[in-house]
Structure formats: C-alpha cells, structure tokens
Design a protein around this nucleic acid. Structure first.
Lengths: 240, 240
DNA sequence: ACAGTTCGTGAATAAGATTCACAAATAAAT
DNA sequence: ATTTATTTGTGAATCTTATTCACGAACTGT
C-alpha cells in the first residue's frame, strides 16, 4: 500500500510550493516585506498549514537557503572533478562561485540575513542541522583539492593545515559576497565587476601560497581566457 | 545664554545613556531578545522619549554600530601613521582589526545584522549616511598606504587600482568576521585562532601582490614577533 | 504671574507572527 | 456500506512588540 508514500510525496510537493511562493514574494516585494500570511495566500493554503511545514518565518528562510546550498555544492563538485591541474581546479571553485551568484543573484543577500545570530537562532534546530549537513560537502570538496595539490607537489603547507588554507580562499569569497550586498560601498570604491575582481584576488592568493604553477597576476587576458575555458569545459550548460 | 547648548548636551548625554543600556541588554540577553520597552525601562525614560532619538529599533542598532565604527577608524589611523615600511603598515591594519575585535567582541555580530538589507533599510536615511560618513575614512586610510607603497616602489599595481587592491584585503577581513560568527563552521574546520590565521593570510596575500619586502609566510615565529612589535609600538595602551 | 512653547509620557494602536479548537477528509474496522 | 478512529487543514483568535500621539508637565520669555 503506497498510500503513505504518496502522502509523503504530496507533503514534499507542498513544501516546494511554499518555498517557491516565498521566493517569488521576496523577489517581487523584498525580504523586508515578506509576510507569512501572504505566502499562505499566494500558495492557496491556510496559514496553519504553512506552519505545519516551518516552525517559524525564520525557519522558512533557512529552508530556502538550504535549497540554494544544494545547487552550490553541486557546482563545487563539478569544479573539483574537472581534469586539470590542482591550481586550475582550485581556481575553478571561484568561477563556480561566480556562476552560482549569476544564477542566484539574491542568494547571498538572503544567506547573509539568515546566518545572522538573530535569524539563525529563530530557526528550528532541525533545519539548522539540515543546513550544516548540506554545506559540509562544500568544505570537503575544497579541502580535497588542497590534499591533491600537496600530493602532486604543487603546494607546500608551510605549517598550515589544508583547512586553514581553504579558509583564506573562503573568506575571500564570503567577504566579496558581503561587500557586494553592502549598499553603496563598492560603488564608492569604483569596483565594477566584483566577482571578476574576486577571481583576480584568488589568483593573487594562490601565488601567495606558492601554489604551482605560479602565474603572472597582471595578465588579465590570460585570466579571462582561463575563466572562459572553465566555463566551456566545466559549466558549459550554465554559461550563456 | 548657554541654555540652548546645555539642552543640546543633555540630549546627547541621554542618547549615550540609551545606547549604553541597549548595549548592556544585548550583552546580557542577546540581540534576539532586545526590546525597545526594556531599553526605556532600563534607562528610566518613557518609550516615547526613546523614539525622540531613534526612528526605529533598527535605527538604534545602526547608531550603536556607528559608535563602534568611530573607534575602528581610530585604530586604523594609528596603524597607517606608524613609522614603518609600507608593507608593515598595511599589515598593521590587520592587527588593528584583530585588536578591535578583542575589545569589541560583539561588534561584528551586530554589524553583520545591521548591514543586512532588511535592517539597513529599516534604519533612517540620516543614520545610514552617518554610518557611511564615519566609515569612509577607513577606506581612505588604507588606500593611502597603497599609494605610499607604489610611490616608494614597494608595490606594482599591475593593472589594478589601489582601491581594488584594498578590496582584496578588506574581503579577507570581512569574510573572517563572518565565519567567526557563523555557528559551528570554524569549529568543524578546526580553526582555533581565526584572527591570527587572518594575519597569516594577509601576509600570503601581500606576498601575492609582490609587496616588498617579501617574507617567508611559513615562518610563524617572525609573524608573532611582528604582531608583538606592532602591539608595542602602535597599540601599547590597548594590548594587555 | 501669565501666555506660549517645547518636552516627556505611557496608554492606545497597529502590524504581523503564531496558535489551536474545530471541521473536513481520509483510513480502518465492522 | 456504514460506523468509528485518526489524521490533516483551517483561519479566527491570541499574543507579542514596535510605534504613535494626545495630553499634561516643565520650561521660556514678557
């Protein structure tokens, strides 16, 4: 009797509907104006039903973030599995991030809010674990590349752990996402293409680590060529 | 007739009282549980009076951030004015950040929340300008060091603007603050002293830029010695 | 002492998130 | 097929807080 399974499936479908409606509302009216009652209205369910799925508004927002994170992990996996030098594979992670942002321009705005203490604490413990669990592979994948690099002799750890090396690149990315969403800040600084700049900084950092083969960080044509190549070879279906 | 001036002063004093009470409440009960009525109660004024000073709760939080930011700028200025090589001065900025965090452990948790679209938009336009105005010198000071470095022949821009170079170091700092406040993330990564790690990454990045004199990023004793020296020579009154 | 003005107050209002008693739908038992 | 039990969905009512604003108190200048 598959009736239980069907119920389960219907439940998941409905959850997806709720999340999509929420996403649409955020896109159209802003995170600031998101109301639980409007989500219920738009999805044609009662408010109570919405609360059967999400412990609180914040819980729903975190759930939304989890959906994105799954896609994010997927892009990182592809970058890591690319057949190329360890340095290029690590760089491909930055490109993956850039592509992810292009496809989910609102993600980090949401994530920034959701990872705030206030919101994070207001989500359910279960959902928080979901998030951590689905983000974990991101770290794993990137640390894996560092290990490969050490094994291949492309990189010396110099007293740092692979995780610590990753942290440097990670903060570069996180920081960029932050600044991009901080009103007016980057404009004042005349930064036109923040993610391209992030890529350049990633290369600077990789050089700083002594990650072989070293490149000329001033050669922006090669940089663009490499980005293009990664788009073609790794993310062909995702680049226009 | 200094009566107008006295009023003005009393007003400012009261504002300071409100902000201090708010800070205490946040420290003791968490940002999540901060209530305007509690701030009024604690400061022994009426809620209405509180609203004479702050357009909204978010506005008050931003005001709190502004107070911190003033201190932050001050530390950066001291780092920039230090009589040392351009590279060491730039590195001293990271140390300034580290010291700032030690003295204001809650600042970036608050800032992270406040700079969120939702909260930022809910603060008054005036306060937002205050914030931008008082943060501006931070950028100025750091860009100044880059200019000095170029003038001194310690650094080649290689097609980047001084602002863009600063952005790299800035994202490193911002990203670090973020990760520090993201629950559980750094623990899983086994990062014990995130700000010391940030310093190491700053040095890696400076090497990556080719900022002279290059150093051996693996030599953590020299790193600690330099940090100590900066504490002594620049921030003597602030380091225990 | 008096009229005019500014300031502080906190009860009243408003906006929304969240709950929960009940109704409808479904499943199980006879 | 009918009855009983269980699960699910509902939305009006509740609760929590931020925010307002009509009023009286305090102050200013005459």
């Amino acid at each position: 009797m598959g009736t239980k399974e069907r119920r389960q499936r219907e439940l998941e479908d409905r959850e997806r509907v709720f999340l999509e409606c929420a996403r649409d509302l955020i896109r159209d009216e802003g995170l600031l104006n998101l109301q639980m009652s409007r989500i219920a209205e738009k999805s044609e369910y009662a408010v109570g039903t919405l609360y059967k799925h999400f412990a609180s508004k914040e819980d729903l927002l975190l759930a939304l973030t989890v959906v994105d994170a799954e896609q994010h992990v997927d892009l990182f996996r592809r970058a890591a599995q690319w057949q190329a030098s360890t340095r290029d594979r690590m760089f491909a992670i930055s490109v993956a991030d850039m592509i992810f942002v292009r496809r989910n321009p609102e993600h980090f705005r949401l994530a920034q809010y959701v990872l705030t203490e206030v919101v994070w604490r207001a989500a359910s413990a279960e959902r928080r674990e979901d998030f951590l669990a689905c983000s974990e592979p991101i770290g794993k994948v990137v640390v894996g590349i560092v290990h490969d690099a050490v094994a291949a002799g492309d990189l010396e750890l110099k007293g740092l752990s692979p995780e610590e090396i990753c942290t440097g690149l990670w903060t570069l990315a996180t920081g960029t996402h932050n600044l991009v969403h901080a009103e007016g800040v980057l404009d004042d600084f005349n930064v036109r293409e923040p993610y391209r700049l992030m890529c350049r900084h990633t290369q600077v950092m990789l050089n700083g680590y002594g990650w072989l083969p070293l490149i000329d960080t001033g050669d922006s044509e090669s940089l663009d060529a490499l980005i293009q190549r990664i788009c073609k070879e790794v993310f062909d279906d995702l680049c226009n």
